[in-house]
Amino acid sequence: MKIEISEVANLPSRFGTFKIQSFKEGIKEHLVIFKEPLGNAPIVRIHSECLTGDTIGSLKCDCRDQLEYALKLIEKEGGMVIYLRQEGRNIGLLNKVNAYALQDKGLDTIEANHQLGFKADERTYEVVEFILAHFGIAQIKLLTNNPRKLESLKKINIVERIPVVIDSNVFNEGYLKTKKEQMGHLY
């Protein structure tokens, strides 16, 4: 795996003052947002890009709420968000919008992905282990509800799973129910 690594820069934000570093893997440029001290087992949130949620504030998902929750927690306690460029569970923005259109017609998020010829979740997490090794991190407290993230980190000792409990709304209730019931998400 050939990865280019940027310098570290400061990032003052509305959530706190962080440091950032970018990791370029092929055409994908991932971002690490971190607050020191990282400690022996830092809090880590692996967050996949969601333009509609993270940037525009879509109410169809809980992505922005999870990201903001993580940034506020990391501002207080230290740790990092690994922001992976895997839009729409790694099917890309165009296909994500097509999946949204299918959801508007009554399909759930998994059925929509299958209709488009994709698995329920196309994301991968190999780069996460590379990033954590770059920071000299061998064990973490993982901020997630997704069991696939827990299973995918083979070289990292997860000493604790911290749940991300976000209130639902009328627009994302079905989405959250599908994640829990069909994808095994934990709360």
Rank of each mutant, 00 (worst) to 15 (best):
T109R: 00
D54T: 15
K19S: 12
C50I: 15
E129N: 07
H114L: 15
F130E: 13
Y175D: 04
K154W: 00
L31S: 07
Y100F: 09
L67F: 02
V128L: 04
P147D: 04
I131T: 10
I166W: 03
F23I: 08
E29Y: 13
G106L: 08
K154T: 13
E25F: 10
E4P: 02
K35G: 08
E160P: 11
G106K: 12
F15Y: 15
Q182F: 00
S152N: 07
G106Q: 09
N157R: 06
L153P: 07
D108S: 04
I5E: 09
A138T: 13
I91D: 00
F34Q: 00
I91T: 03
R85W: 11
K28E: 14
I5K: 07
N98R: 15
E7V: 05
L73C: 03
G79I: 04
N95H: 11
R45G: 09
I74Y: 05
V170Q: 14
A120C: 13
Q21N: 06
I43G: 00
G78S: 04
T124K: 14
K149C: 04
I33T: 10
Q21A: 07
G174D: 15
H47N: 11
K141I: 07
Y100N: 00
V8A: 06
S152Q: 09
G57I: 09
D167N: 13
V44W: 01
K19A: 04
K96P: 03
D104I: 05
F34N: 00
K60A: 13
P147R: 03
V32N: 14
I156F: 14
Q103S: 09
H47I: 09
N113L: 15
V127A: 07
I27S: 10
E68C: 03
N40W: 04
I140F: 10
K76N: 05
V32G: 09
C63E: 13
K2M: 02
F130A: 14
F130H: 13
H30M: 12
V8N: 05
A133F: 03
G184I: 11
L73Y: 06
M183Q: 12
Q115S: 12
L142A: 02
K141L: 01
I46F: 11
E49S: 15
V128Q: 06
H47G: 08
I137A: 09
G184Q: 07
L176M: 13
P12W: 06
E129T: 12
A70N: 01
A101W: 02
L116F: 00
G16M: 11
K96R: 05
V97F: 10
T124R: 14
I56K: 13
N90M: 05
D108A: 02
I91C: 02
G16R: 09
I156Q: 12
E87A: 08
K96H: 06
V44F: 01
C61S: 08
R14E: 15
T178N: 10
E25W: 12
L59E: 15
L186I: 09
V159A: 01
E49N: 12
Q66A: 03
G92P: 04
A70R: 01
Q139N: 10
K76D: 10
E7T: 04
V165R: 01
K179S: 07
F15Q: 11
K28R: 15
L132N: 14
T55E: 14
L11T: 08
G78I: 08
R89L: 06
L73M: 05
R89T: 05
K19V: 01
K2Y: 12
Y187P: 01
E160L: 03
G88Y: 11
I46P: 02
E49Y: 05
E126T: 08
K76F: 08
M183Y: 11
D167V: 11
E4H: 06
